[in-house]
Amino acid sequence: MRNVYLYDGSFSSLLYLVVTLLHSSLTPADIKSYEEYQANLLDNAISIKLIEDEIIYKSYLNKLSSKVMHIVYYVYLSSNERKELVIYYFIKNALKYKDEIIYRRNLNCVNEALKLSKYVGSENHKFKGFLRFKELDNGLYYAEVTPNNNIISLLAIHFKDRLRNESFLIKDKKRNIYALKDESKIYYLNDKDIEKLNINLSDNEKDIEELWKTFFKTIAIKERKNKKAQMNFMPKRYWKDMIEMEEEYENSDKR
C-alpha cells in the first residue's frame, strides 16, 4: 500500500503536514489536497492529526532561509502534480544542507524545485505584461487570464501597487477564482461569491481598444516581419486574452 497523506490545499497546512511527517519520521509515497486526490485501491489515504505544538513548527521552519521559503511558496503555486512531494523532499534536504541547498542541483528534489519555482516566476513575469484590463461602466477594471500555474495572488499584488486609485477584478478562467482589489485590500473570491458578473464596457472602452490595436499594427516594421519570433516570445496560449491578438487567434488554428 502507498501511504498518501491528505491536506486541505492551503500553504500553511502543507507546511504543517510536512513538519509533522518529518518530526514523526514518516515517509509519504505522495501528498495530495482533498480536492485533488482521487481514491485508488493501491493507496492508503491518510488524514494525519497535525502536531499542535507551535514550538515544534518553529524549530523546523525557522531554520529555512527566506530564499528557501520563497522557492517553496512558488513550487506550491505550480500546477505540477508532484509539487507536494517535491516540497517535502526539498524541505527535508534544506534542513540538512541549509543555504547550500540551492547549489545542489545534482539532487533531484532540488533540481525539480528550482525548475518549478522558476516556471511560476517566469509565468508571473509574462502575465505582468500580457494581462489586459477592460474598463467597465461601473469604473471597475476587469481582466481574464488563463495561466498554467496558480499565480493570481502574485498578479494581484503587482497591480495593487500600480493601480492604487482604481478597483480591479482579475479572473483566472482555468480555476474559476477571482482577485478583487477595492480601496487598498485584495479579496479572493470564487464563483459562489459572485452571483452575476455584468460585463458592460464603459462608453469609450472600444475607442481606446481601437487606438491600441492601431498602434500595435503600426509599430511593426513590415520589412522585418518575423511571425516566428513573435510566436516564440508570445506563444499562442496567451493570445485569446489579449485584445490586440484576439482576431488573429480566432482566425488561427487554435491548438
Binding site: I221, K227, A229, Q230, M234
Partner: peptide
Amino acid sequence: ICHSFASDGRCI
C-alpha cells in the same frame, strides 16, 4: 516588462 510582441518579433 514586455507587454506584447509586434509581428516583426520586437518587444512592445
